[in-house]
Write a protein that binds this DNA or RNA. Sequence first.
RNA 1: GGUGCCAUCGCCAAGUGGUAAGGCAACGGUCUGCAAAACCGUCAUUCCCCAGUUCAAAUCUGGGUGGCACCU
Length: 303
Amino acid sequence: MLPRLVVIVGPTGAGKTRLSLELALRLGGEVVSVDSQQVYIGMDIGTGKVTADERARVPHHLVDVVRPNEDMTMARYIELADRAIADVAARGRVPIICGGTGLYVRGLLLGLFEGPPADTELRTELAALGTEKLHAELARIDPESATRIDRNDAKRMIRALEVYRLTGATMTAHQARHDHKTMPRRYEARLVGLAPEREQLYAAIDARVDAMIASGLEREVEALRAAGYLPPLRSQQAIGYAELHEVAAGALERGRAIELIKRNSRHYARRQISWYRPDQTITWYPSSADVDLAELERYLAGL
RNA sequence: GGUGCCAUCGCCAAGUGGUAAGGCAACGGUCUGCAAAACCGUCAUUCCCCAGUUCAAAUCUGGGUGGCACCU
């Protein structure tokens, strides 16, 4: 039997980590992180991981699971998260899902359509076509997707064509059989959203970036470089890392980089907000202090 | 005090008589195997103020205000 889940969502800097720790300590829970960057070993400061000390008090899952030269994918993530949740529950502990990566949260709750994994070679081949031809080709084989996906959005057009070439069925057909809009969730879950007032959130983000720099983010990037983990890697394009790699390469001035990290973090927060906003099942709170922990406790107990 | 230059969206900035480019920021949105990614949309009826010339002024003229530079 699947455990009930409390899922903490919201933009970066909203206080998700703090709430997850509080809940975990109160309920005897373990945190299952839903973060596409915290999975990387050696990327601690810039991804805002909890400290070793905090992890000693509250076990965390799906943090530090791959090396920076490996790529995490949504499918892989879901597989690992399912297992972690089951393990935690099997031990009689409460899994607390804490996630900034909206796509992964959705994937965990709704699953993926039965599709083929990424085919790097095919993607490279398709990418060479250019957006115009991609769109024409997509319009020919899957007009619905061609309408739905913007004609400049190469990534999604490539995925749609990839799915078709590898399965012989269109993305539209696959998604119709696995419709996120109508299907039941894979877990029963209570979604708790943290949504600070915008100005306050931005100020918190800026301060957090300064704190990351002060705690040695640059040293962390140096260590990654020394280990041979360099920018073309997906992991090294994360906010805070990409900019500092440029500084290390002499292509960007340090002060400007810090400014950019702040700006990019704010942009990221905006995207997260707009990702979660339409989800009517999320209960929003201005800050972690406003959340009714006792109520969540009753929910998890099945009351 | 004098002389010169300048004043266009929150910031940078094009436009020098024909009815306000662009970039950044901001804001809204999309998202089904790269998502801290990729992509889309909105954003000056108005150009410091007042008066004038003209069919027509951000663009020309006069005055005012503000900034910068040099001189005294």
